[in-house]
Nucleic acid binder design. Structure first.
Lengths: 334, 334
DNA sequence: TTGTAAGCGTTATCAA
DNA sequence: TTGATAACGCTTACAA
């Protein structure tokens, strides 16, 4: 009772393994009659392709690796899920690697993925620049970077939400709503996207002739207890602060709680806007305004572009910007 | 500049491929001198194992498949992440399959996973019972079910939070806090775990001599708009309702919003408890009491048990219950 | 302790 | 239109 192989199919349908292979892959020529016969036997026996053998032979694994910092973060999970969906539709399976922002682990994963012969790689976010280590020039694996600056842009495709635009618009919105002292709240562990958001914030301030200085950015660290203390200190030093653009929704919500505890009224005294538009934004008090990323488009672009890159390895060097949308809710109301 | 193989290593270090293989896998005998020599060459050349070849030969893939309904759900993502971590530490990589609760997709995934020769499977949640279709008796793949009743418990290991206990305790808590008419809010698409929670709710009512009838369960459907209407109808019919145990946090939060809109005061008029204790519980208004699942323990148990099962395929039939903890917050305060 | 060689399930080349 | 066969990179008897 062992697994049935092409050889068995060949024997049962009275043709050679070569023919069976041709039928399965629909390449080369064979008669309609043969095709029917073979497919029938395949159906009956419940034959399933041994992908290891196929991969070994063809050097194509139909497997894609995804490097992601933290799959329990909604934004990442959502993107990954959608990428996985698209890839599966096209016959690829996906190995998801949760790096936990650990560089060593990332290297280990890369090694294994290479050993498994992945056809391509999608790298999502991260603090440092990403470059694939092609030492000794093995098979070059095409890769796509999402929200993570590649070291050498000519080697890959860079896909990113337009973080700059999002932060810029959100900041202008705060100003328009009357915030005289808007700040940007960001984690000290800074990702590529966070840096870009900061730039957007800064430029929006400039455009409206606000000064950007140490009173304009609130740097935070985990855990929440530390964040609370840092926030309190900041507000003691800069009590005039009346608008916050947070680098993501989690930070925004944490700040909401902290500000409540400090007896600030949101949005009356301080207006808050987050980033990512995760589902939680609807359930906070008050509901949180946020910059929505188009995860569907990001995922779709990434998946399709990678597949394209696999076919045409040298068409790299592009940077694709995905527009974002500011969603206004109670936390930034007038 | 092609990929280096055992053959190259053998040539470069002046031994046979067999010896190289022995050194790599540290099995069989070889002299210390040989070992050093071979490892040096491996190091220098940056050799990486071709896993397809290894898998083909040994029929072991060091790959585990995880079937999960929805990776953007925090509870699932958290469990998956932790399983993945443990498995990677032990040299396994993980193919995560997001089934989207689609039975056809689940079957397709199963086929591919089988073709890729996964050594084991972890199946998380889902509406119907799970049984692996071993038609034609291929290689039997050991699998673990988390939160999803296996069709035949003797074939697998069933791991689950103690949903019954959680629901029972939460219900008792509601009663203890003075709720005279507690209800259970659940989605119409009912999972194994939801059914068990309902049972716990029911038994707690019985214990305290409350009657369980159609006024005790609020059945809901997505999307939120529909949920709102269903809730309003329910409260028109049963206005005495003053306590809610929701089948998960998302439902609980949705209800919180709906009840606010209906001008109910939480927790004064209605007390609410959720399930899962996702991070959002801290940011809702009021903060949500919830039954916390021990994801770390679930994940760890699942991973280790599966690895054990791979070594000892016939030690199946266990059911492992993981205790849960009721976390009390504002939404159920007196 | 080490080497030789068979074989895992495919695909692809070459002949028929 | 088909078939025989080599090759992919690795492990593992069996020999030496």
């Amino acid at each position: 009772m062992k697994k049935v192989s092409v050889k068995d199919i060949a024997a049962l349908s009275g043709v050679s393994v070569a023919t069976v292979s041709r039928v399965i892959n629909n390449n080369g020529r064979f008669s309609e009659e043969t095709r029917k016969k073979v497919l029938k036997v395949i159906e009956e026996t419940g034959y399933e392709m041994n992908y290891s053998a196929k991969t070994l032979r063809t050097n194509k694994s139909y497997t894609i690796g995804i490097l992601v910092p933290d799959i329990s973060n909604y934004f990442f999970a959502d993107v990954v899920q959608k990428i996985e969906f698209t890839l599966f539709e096209k016959g690829y399976s996906t190995i998801i690697c949760n790096t936990g922002r650990d560089e060593k682990k990332e290297m280990d994963y890369l090694k294994v993925l290479q050993g498994k012969g992945v056809d391509g790689l999608i790298v999502i976010s991260g603090a440092e620049e990403f470059s694939f280590d092609y030492t000794e020039a093995k098979k070059e694996i095409p890769y796509i970077c999402i929200d993570r600056e590649p070291k050498d842009k000519s080697q890959t495709t860079f896909i990113s939400s337009n973080h700059y635009q999002g932060a810029f618009e959100a900041t202008e919105q705060l100003i328009k709503l009357g915030c005289t002292h808007p700040i940007f709240a960001v984690l000290n562990r800074k990702s590529t996207s966070a840096k870009t958001r900061l730039a957007g914030f800064k430029d929006a301030l400039n455009k409206h002739s606000f000064t950007f200085n140490e009173a304009s950015v609130l740097y935070l660290d985990n855990p929440p207890a530390k964040m609370k203390q840092q926030t309190q200190t900041f507000f003691t030093n800069y009590p005039e602060t009346n608008g916050i653009l947070a680098t993501n929704d989690t930070i925004a919500l944490e700040l909401l709680n902290i500000l409540h505890a400090m007896n600030y009224k949101i949005p009356e005294q301080i207006k808050v806007i987050g980033f990512d538009d995760s589902p939680i934004t609807n359930y906070s008090s008050p509901p949180l305004s946020s910059v929505q990323q188009d995860t569907a488009k990001i995922a779709d672009t990434a998946a399709n572009h990678l597949l394209h890159l696999i076919q045409h390895p040298n068409e790299t060097g592009q940077t694709l910007m995905i527009p974002v949308h500011l969603i206004l809710r109670q936390s930034s109301a007038v």
